[in-house]
Amino acid sequence: MIHRIVASKHISLMLICLLLLVCYCTGLIAQDHDAINAPAASSTLHVTHILGFEGVSNNANGDLSIQDRALRFKPHEGSPVQVPIGAIQDLFLGEQDKQVGGKPMMLAKTAAPYGGGRVVSLFAHKKYDIVTLEYLDSNGGFHGAIFQLNQGQGPVLRSELEAERTPGNRVADEATKRNTEETSK
């Protein structure tokens, strides 16, 4: 009888833990959906700078926008940094699956009894867009920067950048064409 009571107590404890974790995850995922569904009218994107953008610390959160023919990142703490759009060589889009909740969630999952944390891990993940930028500095040095965006925002950034780059590229192409024609004459 005592054994049954103890076992049922354990099971109820485990269920409570799992319930709390699932609630937490659901909240996080709901927040993320709100972020995805937010209108993309303004070209400011809330992103995480993973690494590479000069003058910004790794894993800094901030706003990425295109202003005055430059890609500008304004971290939540610190001064903004920008790169002229003409200096951007390439942009790649990727996708990454990450666990949500950070360290508190990880600790909670580790503390959950009977491997309950592993079950939660199955559901507590989210897909992000990864944008990789390649650009040159004023000395011609090659830089690479990686940003993490909410799913669906990567293509938005790419299309905005392409729209900004097109006129410049056209001018450059025409100049090259003219030079080629002059040389052939």
Partner: peptide
């Protein structure tokens, strides 16, 4: 290999 990994290796 994904470009993000190439860039991350280079910067690191």
């Amino acid at each position: 290999i994904e470009p993000a990994f190439q860039v991350a290796i280079y910067e690191n």
